[in-house]
Design a protein around this nucleic acid. Structure first.
Lengths: 149, 149
DNA sequence: CCGGTGTGGATGACACATCATCTACACCGA
DNA sequence: TCGGTGTAGATGATGTGTCATCCACACCGG
């Protein structure tokens, strides 16, 4: 570790901008969901995955790969969602270690009620403010930063 | 609220990509800081602000406008940082309600030790993977999304 | 001088995320 | 069939973020 190449003024602005952007966006989305539907962004993501399956049921590890969450975060979050009646856990016959997460009726109506408002908000705060070129660049950026890992 | 314009496949990819990008990046930065210096990204940001002043002291509300944090988050975070000896609180003579946050010696050495590794990581994970054009676009994007509020 | 309103800041309760660790079962090779 | 290793998942501790609320003082008009 020789001399550090510090960020110049412009780089700092870009970096702070990016951090601010994400915090602001996530914050507003969370608030909108919370106020309008009593859900968090995390709840929403879980429910979307479950809704995307025909039976509304998934193994936790499948959810985990879809969501790219840490295993323990998922487990804790499922516990909280179960306590609120949004999902339920069932035993898995095939694999004695495993479990199933199933969407409850309450969970299904929660996501159904929440989705339109959430999508509108995403459009309003994000897509509507950006040009197709900018969106294309963002896509590239995500791929490049995430891809090389 | 008429019919919802759902996100098409491509928009979903862009949106998920953005969310994934920010989570991944913030996560790795936090881990690097934590492991190498015992600091969080939030600690780092507070310490940077304090270091940027000649006396290493700021009023909490000044910190708040710099960091764009919620007041209560700041207050809680300062409490935790004080408990760890990174900062200290002092009374403010001018304003009976107010307080000062002052950088301790431990705080100063922590940020000094942490900065090079952190900046290197930001470069490695972010700047080094993006072209100047992409960075310029990101800058625009932040401004547009944040600006119109 | 006094009451109302505004502002600086702290606090408790609670949801969330991460780490370390643990249990139970599956799977595989000797 | 038995022991080791890997995998599915839960849990406790702790740090973090948000909301609602509160207190103390400042400031301002009467």
């Amino acid at each position: 570790m020789t001399d550090t190449r510090w960020l110049d003024e412009h780089e700092q602005r870009t970096w702070r901008g990016f951090l601010g952007l994400q915090r602001q966006l996530i914050g507003q989305l969370n608030r909108q969901l919370q106020v309008d539907s009593g859900l968090s962004l995390a709840d929403y993501d879980v429910l979307v995955q479950l809704t995307d399956t025909p039976e509304g049921r998934l193994r936790p590890f499948e959810l985990q790969t879809e969501l790219q969450w840490e295993q323990s975060r998922l487990s804790h979050h499922l516990t909280r969602m179960q306590r609120r009646g949004l999902i339920d856990r069932e035993e898995c016959a095939d694999d004695g270690r495993g479990a199933f997460v199933v969407l409850t009726d309450a969970g299904r109506s929660a996501i159904t009620a929440a989705a339109p408002g959430h999508v509108d908000t995403v459009r309003r705060l994000f897509f509507d403010r950006l040009t197709p070129q900018q969106l294309a660049t963002l896509q590239q950026v995500s791929d490049q930063v995430l891809g090389s890992d």
